[in-house]
Design a binder for these strands. Structure first.
Length: 310
DNA sequence: AATGAACTCAACCGCTCGGAA
DNA sequence: ATTCCGAGCGGTTGAGTTCAT
């Protein structure tokens, strides 16, 4: 016996909204504001469930909704953020003013996802600037260029560096050569870093290399999604160099508190030394378009929240 | 022109989370 | 500590539209 659908009540309208219903809902929200969705239909005189009203308002009627095609810039940003965040559409939508999570989700599923399945995207570029599989968007059916054997983000099983739900981000590793100044949310923890667990890369290979040139910071009570939306008042206080984000092996965390929520901002490759960091924008250190994809996505995101990237 | 396939996207569904009681 | 409820999220559905034959 499953749960009753919220619109199961007899007499409620379902399906496409009429112009009249839109008008009623818009007028009501203009006067009374958003919220109390469950009671809204009755009070507004709509034969809809609250959930349906909420969705209609958020995805279609809101005045700040941006209509029209997704621009190239927006698409690039969607791809970058998806690389970073996975299918967290609302979070992605939050970075694209006027776009809704539903719209982005649909766009991804019908455009970008499909294109990536063919190993082809405007976003991925080679070191010489040539578009991988540059057969263009129109050439969706063409075979992917083996040189750019991009593994597209899987619909469900992709090992996204960020888990599906917002997770506390307890540790951020930044470049050592630049010391942070005081900030309310960030504390430097050099001593602990020296005793920090070895870095474990995505292949499960343990190395201490990163600790040679990384400093560990703790973000108190930080949640990664919050971090992405944070307005950092004094970006210069960080003066850091962030390269990429990678989930460390949670089993390497020293306390149970840290397990399952332990992240490193790290270079895309762990085999290089400090020069890797300094030359991170040099494509030569990137081993695959995938590296470029994830790194660029992170760089842009971190840059947008005030981190200095080089 | 007719028809079926493919595509798009608004809407729905089930689930989770967080706050209030 | 537990339960309830409102709200929000991501996955899925299906009606309408466009495209190909």
């Amino acid at each position: 016996m499953g749960r009753k659908p919220c619109c199961a009540k007899e007499g409620l309208n379902r399906g496409a909204w009429t112009a009249a219903e839109d008008k009623i809902l818009t007028e009501y929200i203009k006067i009374h504001g958003e919220g109390k969705w469950r009671h809204l239909p009755k009070r507004a005189g709509l034969k809809r469930c609250g959930k349906s009203c909420r969705l209609r308002w958020l995805n279609y009627l809101r005045p700040d909704i941006k209509r029209g095609n997704i621009t190239d810039d927006e698409e690039d940003l969607i791809i970058r953020l998806h690389t970073l965040l996975g299918n967290r559409w609302s979070l992605i939508a939050g970075r694209l003013p006027g776009r809704t999570d539903n719209e982005i989700k649909n766009y991804w599923n019908t455009n970008i996802g499909k294109r990536l399945q063919n190993g082809n995207s405007k976003f991925f570029t080679t070191s010489n600037g040539v578009e991988p599989g540059s057969s263009s968007l129109a050439g969706q059916d063409s075979d992917p260029d083996p040189e750019f054997d991009i593994k597209p983000p899987q619909k469900t099983a992709a090992p996204c560096p960020i888990p599906p739900k917002a997770t506390r981000c307890t540790n951020v590793i930044l470049s050592q050569e630049l010391q942070p100044r005081n900030h309310t949310n960030v504390t430097c923890d050099d001593e602990e870093t020296m005793d920090a667990p070895p870095f474990v890369d995505s292949e499960g290979i343990v190395t201490n290399n990163l600790l040679d040139f990384m400093v560990d910071f703790e973000i108190d009570e930080g949640v990664f999604s919050d971090l992405l939306n944070t307005d950092i008042p004094e970006p210069s206080c960080f003066e850091n160099k962030v390269v990429a984000v990678e989930e460390a092996d949670s089993s390497a965390a020293s306390t149970s508190d840290e397990q399952g929520c332990y992240y490193h901002l790290s270079p895309p490759t762990i085999s290089n030394n400090e020069t890797c960091l300094n030359n991170v924008s040099d494509d030569s250190i990137l081993h695959s378009p995938e590296d470029f994809q994830s790194m660029s996505a992170l760089m842009e995101t971190m840059n947008s929240i005030g981190f200095e990237i080089f």
